[in-house]
Computed example of a mutant assay.
Amino acid sequence: MHTALALHWQVGPILPWLDLFGIAVFAITGALAATGRGQTLVTATFFALITGVGGGSVRDLLIGVPVFWVHDPLVAGVCLGVALLVWWTPVRWWQGAALAWLDAIGLAAYGVFGAAKALDFGVPPIPAALMGVITACVGGIIRDVLAGEPSILMRPELYVTAAALAAGSHVVLVALGVPPNFAAPSAAIAGFALRAAAIHWRIALPAYGRAR
């Protein structure tokens, strides 16, 4: 049976760092969602954990493997650490568009790792890309629901599309024979670039009824 640490060795040295980076960034957005509403450190820590591991947990349950963060000694500590970071640092560090940009970075990194892990466990290419999208998006959906915010799925600008580009690009590049160590950062950059463009220029897909 695979473990999270064994998987890290199999998919190469770049992907596990993308995984932890995506978890940390999403955990920061969760902590910010709590602190921005004047909540306690306990609430901020819970938001950080549930946002950081939510998408990956759903992915692992769908793939049928042990939930990654339960068997990884680093993940829960990373989420706790970033919650403490947000709690003890000046508010001005996290004002403005910090949440959106951090979320964009995590979206791309986590989408790639989710697709890579699905491929490693023998999931076919298209479902593997969808596992990447789930990995990247579900944590943010949980965060928004708990915070009483409109879900990321209901926002007009490109979001899920950027996750799909990151995950899908990785799957395609690997299928073409590109080594995962090169495919992963390339796909993550593509997903982040699309999300960054959507944030900056407010790019959105046509809404139902407006496309006709």
Rank of each mutant, 00 (worst) to 15 (best):
G132H: 00
G191C: 02
A147G: 13
P13Y: 08
L194H: 03
I14W: 13
G36I: 07
V42S: 12
F182W: 14
Y110C: 05
R92N: 12
D120N: 14
A33E: 02
P180V: 10
A204R: 14
F113L: 09
L99W: 12
G209Q: 06
A190T: 02
A116V: 08
L158K: 00
T161R: 00
M1T: 11
L41C: 05
A183Y: 02
A196P: 01
A187M: 07
F113Y: 13
P127N: 09
A166W: 01
Q10T: 12
P156W: 05
L20T: 11
L85W: 14
A118Q: 07
T43A: 15
G36N: 10
L158Q: 00
L20F: 15
M131E: 03
P180K: 04
Y208F: 14
I50Y: 09
G36F: 08
G106N: 09
A34H: 05
A6P: 00
L173A: 14
Y159D: 02
A109I: 06
C137G: 01
L41V: 10
A24I: 12
D60L: 07
G54W: 04
M1K: 08
I134S: 00
A116M: 05
G139R: 04
I63H: 10
G54E: 04
A184H: 01
V82L: 13
L194K: 01
